[in-house]
């Protein structure tokens, strides 16, 4: 997936300026930068979540497998099936664990009980949650812990077999152990999915990603291998940010 000269504005205010960024296939790309730098806006633009915000506009190009996702030929629902999203705050539906994962499949018209169960199991396994919930699939999802709820949301995204997973601060509300589980899961998921993760936790970006992109005031300042960004960044602004200095 890739963005070319992508610009996103809220009314007059430009939040993302002329960003060119490729998310390498089956790798993890971390988007870092201070609050308000445009990283979350950029992430949301990739599956057109900004369309839902009044006054938001988008210029430039976003390509999925070489096809435009902004010219309107690709339906937003289909786009969001192929490009799934996991949010900062886990947001399971107030339904059973099973129904949470099956929801997207039912919307897509799958109602065969056996097929549904098979896909739900595979998604829960993929999200490293199966062992913890296999005996209580019919219980309410809101009874799960925060970390389990977040993995349930990942399972829900995986159920519709996406190509790309966008994660916006997926572990910022979790304790260190639940965070480690999510990070471990990200390592496993990248064998099958292209992943972009927005995080304020720089150590997390360093741990989970292959590529790191540093955003500042709506611009993509620097992108490089995660090792390079954290040991020897080229741009002074990146250096100041990763070392925690006054700009």
């Amino acid at each position: 997936m890739e963005a070319r000269k992508l610009q996103v504005a809220y009314g007059e205010k430009i939040a993302v300026k002329d960003v060119d960024l490729v998310l390498p296939e089956k790798q993890v790309t971390a988007l870092i930068g201070p609050s308000g730098c445009g990283k979350s806006t950029f992430l949301r633009a990739l599956n057109r979540m900004n369309d839902l915000i009044p006054g938001a506009s988008m210029k430039g190009e976003v390509l999925l497998d070489g096809e435009s996702v902004v010219d309107g030929r690709l339906d937003a629902v289909e786009l969001r099936r192929r490009v799934g999203m996991v949010f900062q705050k886990s947001n399971p539906f107030p339904k059973s664990i099973f129904e949470n994962v099956a929801y997207g499949l039912r919307v897509a018209g799958l109602n065969d009980r056996t097929l549904l169960l098979e896909r739900v199991i595979r998604s829960l396994q993929g999200a490293a949650l199966w062992e913890e919930v296999k005996d209580r699939l019919q219980e309410n999802a809101l009874g799960l812990s925060g970390g389990q709820q977040q993995r349930l949301c990942i399972a829900r995204a995986l159920a519709v077999q996406p190509e790309v997973l966008l994660m916006d601060e997926p572990a910022s509300a979790l304790d260190p152990l639940a965070t480690a589980k999510i990070e471990d899961l990200i390592h496993e998921l990248k064998a099958r999915y292209t992943i972009a993760i927005v995080t304020h936790n720089m150590q997390q970006a360093a741990r989970v990603s292959d590529t790191t992109a540093f955003f500042y005031m709506g611009e993509l300042v620097e992108v490089g291998s995660t090792e390079q960004i954290f040991t020897n960044p080229r741009e002074p602004r990146t250096e100041d940010y990763v070392t925690g200095k006054f700009g």
Partner: peptide, 9 residues
């Protein structure tokens, strides 16, 4: 402190 970049070096 988990130093990075020039601090790490």
């Amino acid at each position: 402190r988990q130093p990075a970049a020039s601090d790490l070096r």
